[in-house]
Write a protein that binds this DNA or RNA. Structure first.
Lengths: 258, 258
DNA sequence: CGCTACGTTGAGAACAATCAACCCCGGTGG
DNA sequence: CCACCGGGGTTGATTGTTCTCAACGTAGCG
């Protein structure tokens, strides 16, 4: 993020592509990797100089428009990806339509590794997004050739595991206002890490996505935003632009301190 | 499990050890690894013949009595473990005492890997338990020497990630009866995988642990057991011994199909 | 300039938490 | 041997938080 504005704000249509499906199939060109702005952040940072050539030979670029699905729960798990622009959500569904968003992915995040034959979740674009794509068997060869890359991925998996456990704490123990505070805090810290603006903090996802991530209805999310606003903890320039007026208090609320 | 009865049913005292703390410090003897019953299941299966010698040189054995803590959230993360007997729980706490159990570990499960300086959760014995212990820096050396072991661990981390995402679905979307059904189903499938008895299925953990794992109060867990019993889906020989009378129906309930 | 998707707010219903009483069992000590 | 005690589990009554249903406002897009 902090990358292509046209990619992040729903204007890919203007590039001459009008249908989501078309946009997806359109760009599958081999990218050079060399000038890649994302590499220093992503697992590719494990590689140096000419090693990047091996990578570039195996990678393809993909674009998604907001709302478009990258793959669905149950699809054969043949490809893995690195996000280069935009935001994705990972979702799991119940038969009657209840949905859990298990995470949001942004620039440099890796996705697609599944131990089984099929993906255990679907991946969808929240905003327009771009990704680098490898085939899973090619990845295996790359990892055997570059052990440092496997270490990088392993470390990344451990991070995600810690994040998932933190999210279980949120979903299992916390009240609505504590959940939303935890979420805003997480976005705020990620924005700082990535050098993105924090005042206001720009939310890529809407109330329904936030609700399904936090185990709350959209109405409760909306009410809870209002509550935080009335308490003077945040202010809202627009539904997607949040100003953190009192981070310390937000931290206390998120931690369950009355 | 299915191992030493004396280890699983609170009788370690009879071996001459009377205090939990003493039990923990008592056995830190070098184990041979060679005759290890657990190895075929655990990450150690990545090693063959003489490689095991390297492992045996680095490993120590530890025992815990029910209720005893292995390490706490925030402790320096210096050691990693493989469970060889009994059941542990991983917990995260909020300041006011609210607790989330993020998982249960049994024979052959690995724990202790943290990317940070400290553990992000505490590990406690549900029943009496035994573990093999390595120091983290020794593990790093082992992984560099035996890449297959790192692959094994990476794969294991991916499994746990998938389990964690499934648990988010449970915590974020499901009703009490669906949560408990999902939990029983998970235990049942694990028991089958490990060749343990399933009729009755023996629960190592009590109602409070189940509640904190499922984001429910102990009272609700108890009521929901009764509900499943009244519906004829399960029967209870005792609170810890469950008979699955209608697995298909249990599956439907767990999946959210009314 | 309507349409649609998103967001907000209100009122009532539903699910689970809390508070409380009780049971059962195993261990302890009189 | 039996009464007492304590922990775990169950069940009931009440409270509370969040969901659902509904109305309304707003902004972007055709």
């Amino acid at each position: 993020m902090g990358l292509d504005k046209s990619v992040n704000e729903g204007r890919l249509y203007r590039l001459g592509v009008n249908l989501p499906e078309a946009a997806a199939r359109a760009e599958s060109l081999v990218t050079p990797c060399g000038p890649c702005r994302v590499r220093p952040l992503a697992i590719c940072s494990a590689l140096t100089g000419e090693e990047i050539q091996h990578l570039a030979a195996a990678v393809k670029s993909t674009h998604l428009v907001a709302g478009q699905s990258l793959f669905n729960e149950g699809d054969p798990a043949t490809r893995v990806f690195v996000v280069t622009a935009g935001t994705l959500r990972l979702c799991k569904l119940l038969a009657d339509g209840r949905r859990q968003v298990t995470g949001f992915l942004t620039v440099s995040d890796f996705l697609g590794l599944a131990n089984g034959e099929t993906y255990a979740y679907s991946a969808e674009a929240v905003s327009n997004a771009s990704l680098c794509q490898f085939y899973k068997n090619e990845l295996r060869a790359l990892l055997d050739r570059f052990p440092q890359m496997e270490r990088e991925l392993f470390s990344e998996a451990n991070n995600e595991l810690a994040v998932a456990q933190e999210q279980m704490l949120v979903l299992g123990c916390k009240f609505a206002i504590e959940r939303l505070s935890s979420f805003l805090l997480m976005l705020w810290e990620k924005a700082i890490r990535q050098g993105l603006p924090t005042d206001p903090l720009v939310l890529a996802m809407g109330r329904p996505d936030i609700g399904d991530y936090l185990g709350l209805s959209t109405e409760t999310v909306s009410r809870t935003f209002s509550e935080l606003r009335q308490e003077g903890v945040i202010s809202l320039d627009s539904p997607a632009r949040v100003r953190m007026l009192d981070i310390d208090r937000l931290r206390d609320i998120a931690a369950g301190l009355r």
